[in-house]
Amino acid sequence: MSIEVKNLNKTFNGFKAVQNISLKLESGSLVALLGPSGSGKSTLLRMIAGLEIPDTGEILLTGREATHVSAKERNVGFVFQHYALFKHMTVFENIAFGLRVRKQSEKQIRDRVHELLSLIQLSGLDKRYPSQLSGGQRQRVAVARALAPRPGVLLLDEPFGALDAKVREELREWILRLHEESHVTTLFVTHDQNEALEVASRILIMNNGKIEQDGTPIEIFDHPATHFIAQFVGETNYIDTEVTEKGLAVWGPFRFSIDPKFAPHQKIRIYFRPHDVYVTESFETLQVKARIKKTRFKGTVIEYLLDIGEDKSIFAQVPKGVALASGFKENQDVYAAITAYHVFPL
């Protein structure tokens, strides 16, 4: 089932939660809706599910007008951040709920529930109550419950937000495999960029009720479309400077070749990621002198604060192995180059 949204608007007490959003999701895709809290991503998801009514705009499910179809009739699966499991029902009855209201036979229900229980690897826990499950187990039951009536679309609202890092990691993997097996069109909301980058094949980034960029994880990460995305996705350095001459900007010892569309003396902001700063012990071409002021261990990488003179400093990240082999330490003189950057007008 495909999802199409045209010019959707929603205002809550004067606050524009969703502003003129249009998007199209192909059947079978796995898409993340990424944005900070309050960016309107949950509202958009809830409107697609029919839990909120848009002020204006259209929602089409499989090409059919669904804007005024009740949530009851839309045949979408919805997974809530806090699970929203029926706490007075067993795991079995929770998963069976959507089948019971569709008046399926007892045998059909039993077969489907057991099929889903094995899919979520919780066979044997069917008689437990939600309060007797861990957070990760509860969320898997919530996903199974949403999938039970074979919905055309699966919508997940911050599905792993309330879980700890380790469980979240496992569930990401699991949702990927689940999608590979079921091929149900999946749209999930998250504020966790790693989750979006890892799981989705396409990411929509929302800010202030609008979609700022729509692209693959690599596109989003390497070619941020706006200031906001350059800062929001991944870690980044940014420097404010101005165009020195046509096609060139100079900041401290660094020289950036830039798009000739920027006029001389125009104010610009240049973003570059710490891991795109190339640091070596001995001089290589195009590098500038720098001094390591601080080091910080960050797991797979080591981060350095580099003093590049003129009271200017930048962050650089070096893979741990390279850093250890080079033996970088504080107050050491090194050489650095910026290998990739993005320029935005201010």
């Binding site: 949530a71 009851k72 809530f80 029926f86 706490k87 949403a146």
Partner: peptide, 10 residues
């Protein structure tokens, strides 16, 4: 939440 879940489930 539970009512909304039930509604979406049909």
């Amino acid at each position: 939440d539970e009512e909304e879940a039930a509604l979406v489930l049909g």
